[in-house]
Amino acid sequence: MREPRLEIEYCTQCRWLLRAAWFAQELLTTFPGDLGEVALVPGIGGVFEIRLNDETIWSRKERHGFPELAELKRLVRDRIAPDRDLGHSDRP
């Protein structure tokens, strides 16, 4: 396993694979040398959780929805590359 490892667990019953894959693509594009691995993990029951090294950084059930992409990038950046400027994603 490569570190840091980001997992996106998505509900197959809800057909959220494309959303999960899009988030994965965007994070791999933004952090090409900082993420060791991005895994898509099929789940059921409305799950959509994003974990970084076993820390849940987003849970759809807890936050009542999906993250905005800019917010997700900031959450990941703050943990793996806190000095990185995300350009327009850092602005409100």
Rank of each mutant, 00 (worst) to 15 (best):
R2I: 15
P4Q: 10
P4L: 12
R5I: 07
R5S: 08
R5P: 01
L6Q: 12
L6M: 15
E7G: 02
E7A: 04
I8K: 07
C11Q: 01
Q13H: 14
Q13W: 13
C14R: 07
C14K: 10
C14I: 03
R15W: 10
L18R: 03
R19K: 15
R19N: 09
A20I: 05
A20S: 08
A20E: 03
A21L: 11
F23L: 10
A24E: 00
A24G: 01
Q25V: 10
Q25E: 15
L27Q: 08
L28G: 13
L28F: 07
L28P: 02
T29V: 10
T29L: 14
T29E: 10
T29Q: 15
T30S: 14
T30K: 09
F31C: 02
D34Q: 15
G36T: 02
V41Q: 04
P42R: 00
P42F: 06
P42S: 00
P42M: 05
G43M: 07
G43C: 03
G43A: 13
G43W: 03
I44Q: 10
G45N: 13
G45E: 08
G46A: 01
V47C: 12
V47M: 08
F48Y: 12
F48W: 07
I50P: 05
R51F: 06
R51Q: 07
D54W: 03
E55A: 11
T56H: 02
T56S: 06
I57P: 02
W58F: 01
W58K: 01
R60D: 06
E62T: 07
E62A: 14
R63G: 05
H64S: 13
G65P: 04
L69P: 08
E71W: 13
L72I: 02
K73E: 06
K73W: 12
R74G: 08
R74I: 13
R74L: 09
L75H: 09
V76R: 02
R77P: 06
D78G: 09
D78W: 06
I80P: 08
P82S: 12
L86C: 09
L86T: 11
G87V: 08
R91V: 13
